[in-house]
């Protein structure tokens, strides 16, 4: 079977500075991949490029998703194809509630109207998994949410939208131990659904402690310097990135 995501020879520039160089990465359906690396290695650049942020320019290489070259797809078309990204700092949008926003997004993706009753039941269940008060569903999208609440709201959107590949961009940064645990259980809930693959971008290992990991990639200075399994996470946890930075 063809892989879900296949990146080959990818170069990406921001404002004419090349950030990613000749990057190759393959993610199979339902797999959980971890992308680790020190600050400034280009991890978020990869996430933004996959999602189609116009600020990031692909100067070489290809990205195939679901067997399709997605280079020319707009951001929302990529979302329709099943890509999702959890943002580091999601914006606040007054005037639309979190639940209405998710419903609108679902309807945009499927082109069908969503049955309100089923939707309500599902969102209530997911809010519970994330230890969020049900009233969050009716609050304006991210408005007045704390850092931790915003991250949880991102995971809630992931659980509701059910993408085939979710990119979690530093979802654990700035969270306290309890919040990391909650977010982690949200991610586990997503993993239970075997169709959904994950690309977890992080520079720490906290969020990974209770998650199953299929593959780990270490990114340093825009190059993937090592690919491995879950054991790489443990090594980085103990010894940091020094060994890779010397490569």
């Amino acid at each position: 079977m063809e892989p879900l995501l296949k990146i080959q020879g990818l170069n990406v520039s921001v404002d004419d500075n090349e950030i990613l160089h000749d990057l190759n990465l393959t993610v199979g359906r339902g797999e959980t991949h971890v992308l680790m690396g020190p600050n400034g290695a280009g991890k978020s650049t990869l996430g933004n490029t996959l999602m189609g942020n116009p600020h990031y320019k692909v100067t070489a290489g290809t990205i195939f998703f679901n067997g399709k070259n997605i280079e020319d797809l707009s951001v929302n078309e990529r979302a329709k194809e099943g890509l999702f990204m959890s943002f580091q700092s999601p914006i606040e949008v007054p005037g639309v509630s979190l639940s209405n926003f998710i419903r609108t997004a679902l309807e945009q993706r499927s082109g069908k109207r969503i049955r309100l009753w089923d939707f309500k039941k599902e969102i209530e269940q997911k809010l519970k998994v994330l230890d969020m008060d049900p009233s969050y569903a009716d609050r304006d999208l991210n408005v007045g949410f704390s850092g931790g609440e915003k991250k949880k709201a991102e995971i809630l959107q992931m659980l509701m939208l059910k993408p085939s590949l979710a990119i979690l961009d530093e979802t654990d940064s700035g969270l306290d131990v309890d919040a990391v645990r909650t977010v982690s259980s949200g991610v586990r809930e997503f993993q239970k659904d075997k169709d959904g693959a994950l690309l977890i971008i992080t520079h720490s290992t906290r969020i990974l402690e209770s998650l199953h990991v299929d593959a780990t990639h270490v990114l340093v200075n825009g190059h993937i310097v090592e690919d491995g399994g879950a054991e790489l996470v443990d090594e980085i946890n103990e010894k940091g990135f020094t060994r890779f930075e010397e490569k």
Partner: peptide
């Protein structure tokens, strides 16, 4: 309208027009 805001909303599947309209409605809230 910030490009980041449009990008965020589009990444959830909203077409660009809808993303902008949502931001403007929010602005007029």
């Amino acid at each position: 309208i910030s490009d980041d805001a449009v990008f965020y909303l589009m990444s959830r599947g909203l077409p660009e027009d809808d993303a902008r309209a949502l931001i403007v409605s929010g602005f007029a809230d």
